[in-house]
Amino acid sequence: MNYVLLAEQFLNGIQLGLLLFLLSAGLTLVFGIMDLVNLAHGSLYMIGAFFAATFTALTGSFLIGVLLALPATLVVGIVVEIVVLRTLYARNHLDHVLATFGLILFFNELVRVVWGPAGMSIPLPAALDVSVSLLFGITYPIYRIVIILVSLAVAVGLYFLISRTRIGMLIRAGASNRTMAGALGVNIPRLFTLIFGLGAALAGLAGMMIAPVTQASIGMGEQILIFAFVVIVIGGIGSIRGALVGALLIGIIDTMGRSFLDVLLLVVISPAAAETAGPALSSMMIYILMALVLAIRPQGLFPPRGRQ
C-alpha cells in the first residue's frame, strides 16, 4: 500500500464527503425545520446536473452553464414546494414518503422525455482538465480540487448565513419552534419556500459539479440520496454541523474502504476469500457504521439543540 495512492484516495474521500454535505445540508434543513421527508431531493440533484449540461452546451462555457443552472434549479425547487409539498406539511411521514416517491417517478420520466434516456456528459474546460502535483509527489486532478474548494466555500457561507444573518436567525427560530416564530410575525410559509429553494439549489450544485466527472444520468440522484440519508441519520437530523461531520465520515470511509479493504483483509484471510469479501464488505461498511452509531446514540452524533 503506497502512501501516494492513500493520499489520493483520502482526497477523493473528502471530495465525495463535501459533495454529500451539499446534498445533506438541504435535506437536513428541510427535515429539521419543516418536518418533511423528502425523497425527491435526489431528483433536484439530477435536474441540476442536466440543467448544467444543457446550459454548458448552449453557452459553450461550463462556468456560465453552472451559473445559469443554479437559479434554474432553485426555481424548480420553489415550484415543487409550492405545487406539491406545501400541501403535505400537515400530513404524516408516510404520506411524505409516498408523495415524494411519486415525484421521483415523475422527474425521472420527465428527464427521460426531455433529455433522452442516454444521459449527458459535460466537457470540462481545458484549464480544469489537468492534474497538478501537490506535496510529496502526489498528483491530483485540478477539477476535483475545485470541487473541494467550492464545497468548502459553500459550507462556510452556509454557516455564516445561518448563524450571522437575519434570514439565518429566522431559519433557526423556525427550526426550534415554528408555531412561536409564526406567532411573532415570521411568515413561516414563505420561510419554508425559501429554505426548500435553498436546499434545492445546494443539491443542484452538487449534481452540477459531479456531472463532468461522472455524467448527468437518470437515477443518479437515488444512489446518492441513500448516502445522504445515512449521513443525516449519523449526524443527527436537523443539524448542519452533524451533516458536515457525517458527510466527511461517510465520504472518507466509503472511498477508503472501496480501495483498501481487500488489501487489509489479506492480512487476515486468504487472497481468494479477500477478493470476494472485500467488495462485499466495503459496500456495506457505511451501513454498518450507521447501525453502530444508532445502536449507541439513536439520536445521531450531533442532535440539534432544542429538539427532543
Binding site: 441519520v233 450507521m290 447501525a291
Partner: peptide, 28 residues
Amino acid sequence: ISLRTKGVYFIMITLAFGQMLFFLGISV
C-alpha cells in the same frame, strides 16, 4: 436496531439496511 428509533429515523434506517443487502447482492 431500527426499532430503537422512531419516525423518520426508522424510515431511513430500514431503507439503508435494505440498500446494504442490495449492494451486497450486487457485489457477490
